[in-house]
């Protein structure tokens, strides 16, 4: 096992501090990067659909964390895993994300029909 692990890490490049097998922390790093990317996407994109994509990324980053904590496979010595609970929560996140996307898309299309643009900076009709 250890020989192959060493090869795998060497091929894959970025070795983390304790890169002897995958731990929960590795997944948390992925989740953090997805989350940050989503936040930035929500902040800088002016296209309404781009903002929507940022939201999806954020939700997904959270989901990665849930799955990592839920996985008995990743659980290290002495750590507590969420078990099925984490997976069920991830499931609910996915479902609610679908619902959120449907409504947000309907709003965006309505906005597009009314204003002929999807630039969120132009949605300032109510500005006093």
């Amino acid at each position: 096992m250890s020989g192959m692990l060493g090869a795998g890490v060497a091929i894959a490049g970025p070795a983390f501090a304790a890169a002897d097998g995958v731990s929960v922390a590795h997944y948390l790093v992925v989740g953090a990067i997805l989350f940050t990317a989503g936040i930035v996407c929500m902040a800088v994109k002016r296209n309404a659909l781009g903002v929507l994509m940022g939201i999806e990324l954020v939700l997904n980053g959270a989901n990665v964390n849930f799955i990592a904590f839920a996985s008995p496979y990743l659980r290290g010595q002495g750590a507590v895993s969420l078990g099925i609970d984490g997976q069920v929560i991830a499931l609910f996140v996915i479902l609610l994300a679908a619902a959120e996307a449907a409504v947000a898309l309907a709003i965006t299309l309505n906005f597009y029909n009314n204003h002929s643009t999807v630039d969120v900076d132009r949605a300032d009709d109510l500005k006093g």
Binding site: V22, S23, V24, A32, P72, Y73, G76, Q77, G78, A79
Partner: peptide, 15 residues
């Protein structure tokens, strides 16, 4: 935060 808890950094037992 991800690296702050020591238990999270231990490699998985592979169950």
């Amino acid at each position: 935060a991800a690296f702050s808890v020591e238990a999270w950094r231990r490699p998985g037992l592979g169950e």
